[in-house]
Design a binder for these strands. Structure first.
Length: 225
DNA sequence: GACCAGGCACATC
DNA sequence: GATGTGCATGGT
């Protein structure tokens, strides 16, 4: 089977569940998202864009230490001030703008109420989030899944890498295609999606960074192609 | 001193 | 629709 080909539908379901099982057995529950409130999750989702969690956490801690982690306080901050606070997260100028854009949306559209956001039809909400400049598909889905408990599978670079390696998706599959495939085969299971994505990130962190470690990858027993 | 990390928008073709 | 580029920190 070539890398561009796709497995049979039933085989895909089986393999997807098998991968999950292996990862869960290897790493256990990941307890995502590491945040105390849904709002903190949403802020973190923007700050973590193309950055490691360590740096993201520093930025969030800076905000927290000044007791500024509320929609109102953050949105009244000057752009420069906000940027300097989130400096450790990298791309601090763009992220400050993106955070502002999200805060304006959250306050204006939902009165800064997570409860109201949760009450919204989740597909509509997803579209609204994507309309916010600075929120792309992965960030929107992270917010939907980890802050609002809506069943959207978060697709990231690791997800693409791992699933294409095991011929579950085409190499050049779009975000939408990958997500649709996963949701078709796994159902709409919030807890499963939560853990699965977190486990993929964990796997990538531990085994895909350096080549020698790939020999110990828990998924090694699965024939990749 | 490279290289990478839990992306996204924008320009250009 | 696909491809290229800027954005920036801190760890390995």
């Amino acid at each position: 089977m070539g890398t561009q080909s796709c497995r049979h539908a039933v085989a895909k379901t089986v393999l997807l569940k098998k991968i999950y099982k292996i990862l869960f057995h290897s790493f256990g529950p990941q307890k995502w998202w590491p945040a105390q409130t849904p709002f903190e999750v949403m802020v973190g989702a923007i700050l973590v864009q193309n950055t490691n969690w360590n740096n993201t956490k520093r930025a969030i801690d800076q905000i927290k230490s000044r007791h500024l982690l509320t929609p109102k306080k953050l949105s009244t901050l000057r752009l420069k001030t906000l940027a300097s606070l989130i400096r450790p997260a990298g791309y601090f100028n763009v992220k400050a703008k993106r955070l502002k854009n999200f805060l304006a949306f959250f306050v204006d559209r939902y009165g800064a109420q997570v409860r109201k956001m949760k009450a919204r039809d989740c597909k509509q909400l997803r579209r609204e989030l994507l309309d916010v400049n600075g929120i792309g598909e992965e960030t929107a889905d992270s917010m939907l899944l980890y802050a609002l408990n809506k069943p959207f599978f978060v697709v990231d670079a690791y997800t693409r890498r791992i699933f294409s390696r095991h011929s579950l998706i085409k190499k050049d599959a779009s975000y939408q295609e990958i997500q649709a495939m996963l949701m078709a085969h796994l159902g709409k299971d919030v807890s499963l999606f939560n853990e699965y994505h977190a486990l993929i990130v964990r796997l990538a962190k531990e085994f895909c960074r350096t080549k020698p470690l790939c020999e110990q990858c828990p998924l090694k027993s699965l024939k990749s192609i």
